[in-house]
Amino acid sequence: MASNAGVAQSRALPGPVRFITSSIGAKVVMAVSGFVLVGFVLVHMIGNLQIFLGPEAINRYGNFLQGLGELLWVFRLGLLAALIAHVASAARLVILNQSARPINYSHNDYVQVKFAARTMPISGIVVLAFIIFHLAHFTGGKVQPELFHFQDELGQHDIYAMVTLGFQNWFISGFYIVANALLALHLSHGVSSMFQTLGVTAPAWRPLTHALGPVIGTIIFIGNVGIPLACSLGLVAIPAGAM
């Protein structure tokens, strides 16, 4: 029996590997890494919103982060680990789930499945692509290198100028807006799912946990999209000299 060979195969692995490769363990990996990532996204958003307080605040914040030195790398590596775990586990689950139904129904009709839930892999891939782009854009300075070397009056890296000027490009702003919309969609299923995976059992809590995903998704969408939108529409002061 093929199934029993599968059991034997899995038993040969070390305990923690067995856990994260089991169906439930893989979900736990998704939930925990997802929790870390969504926590970061929230904090990141709150930090970035300081752009509305003017150049001083955002530049101070950015340079404070830069000044963390090794500590910053601890955060970065932690986030990278969470991201890799999240993506790798997701990729594995997608492949397994597709192979679990080799022949599809010719006529399919879902009663319950939500759009957000069905599109998790796609929204996930776009968000991943966005993360790489975003890092290259504002952390690596590879997308608009001409905006990367401004300095403010204090001689610090002028993040305010980089961001506000960067978002004058409608293609870039547009990509940020679309990617954040998909991120919101991703979180609206992902955050609610996390509670189920981690064993929040009482059906009485379900309205709350089901609402939390869309609520957090919406908050992040509004917060994150607000920045490129405000910049593109000229709702924040654009440093004139840099143009």
Binding site: G6, Q9, K27, L96, N97, R101, S193
Partner: peptide, 9 residues
């Protein structure tokens, strides 16, 4: 081992 898929809630 039976080859069922994984729950994605």
């Amino acid at each position: 081992a039976e080859g069922f898929g994984n729950c994605t809630n």
